[in-house]
Design a binder for these strands. Sequence first.
DNA 1: GCCAACGATTAGATGCGGCTAACTTACCTG
DNA 2: CAGGTAAGTTAGCCGCATCTAATCGTTGGC
Lengths: 232, 232
Amino acid sequence: MTAESPPARTSGAAVSQAVQDYAKAIYSLQRGAGEPVSTSSLAERLGVSAASASAMVKRLEPLGLVSRRPYRGVQLTDAGERVALAVIRHHRLLELYLADALGMPWDRVHAEAEVLEHAISPELSELIAAKLGNPTHDPHGDPIPTVDGTIEETATVPLAELRAGRTGIFARVSDSDPEMLRYLSERGIAPGDRLEVVERQPFDGPLTVRFTSGEYPLGGGLARMMRVAVDQ
Amino acid sequence: MTAESPPARTSGAAVSQAVQDYAKAIYSLQRGAGEPVSTSSLAERLGVSAASASAMVKRLEPLGLVSRRPYRGVQLTDAGERVALAVIRHHRLLELYLADALGMPWDRVHAEAEVLEHAISPELSELIAAKLGNPTHDPHGDPIPTVDGTIEETATVPLAELRAGRTGIFARVSDSDPEMLRYLSERGIAPGDRLEVVERQPFDGPLTVRFTSGEYPLGGGLARMMRVAVDQ
DNA sequence: GCCAACGATTAGATGCGGCTAACTTACCTG
DNA sequence: CAGGTAAGTTAGCCGCATCTAATCGTTGGC
């Protein structure tokens, strides 16, 4: 029954929930390639106006979380990346915990984790990690950053880009579309499954893909969201 | 990775975290007696200035959560009480869950629950309740409101008010003082224990109390925070 | 090589929840 | 019952994170 929880602090600077969300969004937009992130893509990702994103990014700079070149885009600093990875670690541990320990449906854990990731203390986060046996991947196949902020990103390509005959491991899928998650889980398809592209129709047509659980035709939208660690 | 979580809504009105905190604070200050709550006590409880509390209470009124008589105090409406009880339910379920399922030390669960109570969805709250077997009391002995907003308050008196020779059940203890919680748990004293006041020194002096785990001298501060369901 | 179009930024406003300082009200004391 | 004191309220401010509207930079097409 104490007062409002004050914003967490990193190196003396306030790190509000909004700041964490921006760090996370910038991180995932620049993932892999260290490409600067545009204001408009950031705004779209967060569901805010471009003006808001521009203003917020300007506030992030003196906090030492981003480097910014006006009209050219924004990139996370090391400190910014640490903030993003901490939030992502919380998010993915929570997803795993909610699904495994509490039996929450796979397609709802994302929304719940989205809120809780900003609320749990580092201590609770590590209690959860320990309870889960310090996992390295969440239920969507996404790697979980370590406490000290390192993350093992395996090279993956969208399933949609694979030609017929290619094989690999279904590595991960976006966690943000409940519809898609339900569709996949109903068919017994999960990250870690081995797959082979059996056939590929031209003009962004459906792919026929063989999984352990069977052979399915997958539309272009779905195939772009599913990422594969290709053999060799 | 969606935008900020918007404030939850009840009957069309926004119920922000601050609003929830005020509802909870008013509820516990007027607990038992339906006495109106003064601005200053509310401000002190929440750690804000009296001006802030006054302004906030004025905002609560058009939301239909409180009835207010200027200069005379504030009381929760039925709707306000429902908000408070929902938050309290979340809080106490979380305390129990954090301690039982995750092994978080008893003296830290309060602070964690204080933050999480505003973040968990009703759905997660009920998953947790089910996992715990729909408990009726939290680890501090506080009753847990039901989903539909009823709460069983048993009549208790502060241990400090008992004369020598009185017996009863140690019913509950404030959950907000980690120091005290640690002290009690180190001595194996927990809500539910039977106790007898062996001796009472005058002038707010220490009480000697016999518990199942042994006999202890308890100072006035502690004895005022511990509440007892007295026999008969 | 100019300029239109589009993306980015600035300007100015809003709502929330907090603050201090100044002023009212209620009530108690003499 | 007058007046002082303590509690409560109002006034005016701030910072955060958002918005719309207007302006500015960059760049590609002609």
